[in-house]
């Protein structure tokens, strides 16, 4: 794999590379002093990071604070980045540590936050096919299901929850999740399987209503 440093080149020069390579290249350009390269990384990853943090804390404000903290670690720790692994692996390792530290704080366990309704509502705005369902009851049930899943996810052991979120929501492969969590692919498969079983058990009482034709 070859890496090149660009100081003054524009974005179009790197647009044809794959997404992972482009992130690493942007990071190297930022290391070389190009501030604009970080702005591009920020634009690509800030939203996924806010959503990743939300899956752990279920609170928009705190999710944004966590995402800011993660991005600041990337910004300040750029000199420690080496392109030996995918940029997203490095990024989500930082993000996972920050989120797990947050949910392990005593005050987080004491204060049970209500789950925001924002994600399901946003889903219908983002995906037009979900608005085509003429049955308003079904729409409400769909929202209730998504909310139930978010609640059940919060009751999973931290590592199972992390593996599930990284794979199902952040679209990382099992191998990438393994790299982020510093464990084997086999262990990731096992964690996700156990998470799915536990979540299915939690959701089963809610499902028959939704499955009514």
């Amino acid at each position: 794999m070859e890496w090149a440093l660009y100081r003054n080149d524009g974005f179009l020069m790197t647009a044809e590379t794959s997404a992972g390579d482009q992130d690493a290249e942007l990071m190297l350009r930022f290391q070389a002093g190009e501030e604009g390269a970080f702005e591009a990384l920020f634009a690509r990853h800030s939203k996924p990071l806010v959503n990743f943090a939300w899956r752990f804390v279920h609170n928009r404000e705190r999710a944004e604070e966590l995402a800011q903290e993660i991005l600041l670690k990337v910004y300040e720790g750029s000199d420690r980045y080496r392109p030996t692994a995918k940029f997203t692996t490095w990024l989500y390792r930082i993000a996972t540590n920050s989120c797990l530290n947050e949910i392990r704080r005593p005050w987080f366990r004491i204060v049970q936050r209500p789950i925001d309704a924002a994600p399901p509502a946003a889903a219908e705005a983002a995906h037009p096919e979900l608005r085509q369902d003429p049955d308003p009851v079904r729409n409400l049930e769909r929202e209730a299901l998504a909310r139930a899943l978010a609640g059940a996810l919060g009751r999973l052991p931290a590592r199972q929850r992390t593996a599930f979120i990284l794979n199902k929501y952040q679209q990382l492969s099992y191998a990438e999740v393994g790299e982020v969590m510093q464990t084997s692919e086999k262990a990731v498969k096992s964690m996700i399987h156990r998470a799915r079983e536990a979540l299915a058990e939690s959701l089963a009482p809610v499902l028959p209503e939704y499955r009514r034709p």
Partner: peptide, 29 residues
Amino acid sequence: PAQWVEVLPGLEGEIEPSPGFARAFYREA
């Protein structure tokens, strides 16, 4: 139920960061 768990993440949308999110970040950085 297990298949539902697999497909449900597709129902959830994404939160858009607040309008001031980027500005707050760069100010702090």
